[in-house]
Design a protein around this nucleic acid. Sequence first.
DNA 1: CTGAAAGCGCTAACAC
DNA 2: GTGTTAGCGCTTTCAG
Lengths: 331, 331
Amino acid sequence: MQDIARKVGVSPMTVSRALRDGTSVNAQTRDAIRQAVEELGYVFDSTAANLRQQRTGFVAVTIPSINNANFADTVRGLSDGLKAHGLQPLLGYTDYDIEQEEILVEQLLRRRPEAIVVTGGQHTPRCRRLLQSAGIPVIETWDLPSEPIGHVVGFSNADAAAMLVDHLVTSGRRRIAFVGGEAGGDFRGADRRAGFVAAVKRRGMDVTRLVDAGKAPVSMREGAIATRTLLEYAPDTDAIVCVSDLVAFGALTECQRMGVDVPGQIAIAGFGNYEVAQISVPPITTIDPFPERIGRQAADIVLQALGLETGAAAWSARLEPQLLVRASAPR
Amino acid sequence: MQDIARKVGVSPMTVSRALRDGTSVNAQTRDAIRQAVEELGYVFDSTAANLRQQRTGFVAVTIPSINNANFADTVRGLSDGLKAHGLQPLLGYTDYDIEQEEILVEQLLRRRPEAIVVTGGQHTPRCRRLLQSAGIPVIETWDLPSEPIGHVVGFSNADAAAMLVDHLVTSGRRRIAFVGGEAGGDFRGADRRAGFVAAVKRRGMDVTRLVDAGKAPVSMREGAIATRTLLEYAPDTDAIVCVSDLVAFGALTECQRMGVDVPGQIAIAGFGNYEVAQISVPPITTIDPFPERIGRQAADIVLQALGLETGAAAWSARLEPQLLVRASAPR
DNA sequence: CTGAAAGCGCTAACAC
DNA sequence: GTGTTAGCGCTTTCAG
């Protein structure tokens, strides 16, 4: 800034003012400064401004995996909501591991974000402490934590799974299997599985058809392999609930390879409303958790908590995922 | 740090030393400091350290879309490569728009990243200038720019498309179509299309079968719709090269819905080796551009350019995408 | 091994 | 509308 100031013949303070808006600077001076900036190729140093103002414009975001269309949609909704207010997401991923989450969260907090949006409500004790005492808004998403740290934008994964079971039973299925990941870091997947088990038991049906397809994130291929195993051991299965649409698509393709008719012999349902589930043949019955909306709502809460936006202050939002009945598991 | 220092009875300087490693501090003092840090819930402020050291530990990264498994893989490869050296990716996306890229790049440079990794080699003039004069390593990826700004980790998209044409012709196809996005922000898609056109012309065949499926990113659904249009206007088409596997999967499903045999009547090829192409029925012939490897190589170049890693200094890397022949377009 | 002084590049607060 | 002073929370440098 000093270089610019010298060149234009003003003080650095005037340069500082000219580069922001909402500050009063002589119009000619401002133009001259802007021109000098371009000529010298000066790029504003926000690290210094951040330190002085004690404001970074960062919003920390953690997701389990960057390679997941659902979480990517949430990040997109969040980013787009923040962009208008000059906030920048600072993204990290945990690989579905709360130990890694702890490390990541600490790393992110060192950057002094103004808010932090995390996926899920399960954290290590130290991670909880870090979040609680960070002195910034904390938003947990994609879940309904029993003891929220701060704000929540989520839904019941268990209820969503139960919706699928209900639908399948209503449409006449009785021997329903669940294909998901092994108990591990994917707490939302585990919750779906728990919801499945509860719903099946509630109806007095068997809960023997539970297949672990591998560690999260479970791939299409793993879904296919698990389905083959399932159908070898329990060939009379008449419906499969999958932990995600990716697994469901794997199951669908495996049925096609095995010559099993979907939905004639077996109905298949997934979770997430991924694009592949909309367009596969047949398209896959699923639950839409509205991932982008989760991100948008989180952004709204952040903006309100930071006083950047006025309006009805939502502390938290419980979303209602929607059942999408398609040909893989029709009515 | 002062609070900690007071509590332990040392100077802030000693605290600063104790919290870093490779510095000499009395072992007991260090333990006492570490304990005080936990008790007081102190979290190191890296914004201040960054300013003082003129090092942020950020590596800026721009991708066209966050919701794309290929670019996500590149980011993963990059992140994983950087993590070991304490560097943190600072990610932004451009929505396939070089104007947005310019804005994003400037925004990112204000954060004083130590290197910047961008997707593609097409930029606005001002964006080029910003990158050139940023004084940090610049890595362009996913393309082979005619005038690179700095480092490059990429491949020829045109050659990749030509490989597919060659394969299809070798396997007896003659009336080959291309389904892709409209001329616009997706320069890699445009390059594939150009490579397709050149390869088809080289063999003296028709280049009338070019279908614009919409703006990038082209979805599975848009691929399906475009394929329907194509087959209505040119029902004698015997092969389709798609700008991505997602489009190819859309094409495949549309053929299934229309009762067109794949590969009997029409062969389908995609690009990207997305998971859906591995497991669909039939699996889809494609090109694997090794997205994660692109990220890893970019990370290696960044680390070497910053002097964090010694070894054979690769200035740039030209990768060779691999043709994967599958049942949708067999030999 | 430890401490004191200075300063990274910017801006709040106060003068004029 | 513009300039001066001080300081954000760290770390480099130098002294002990």
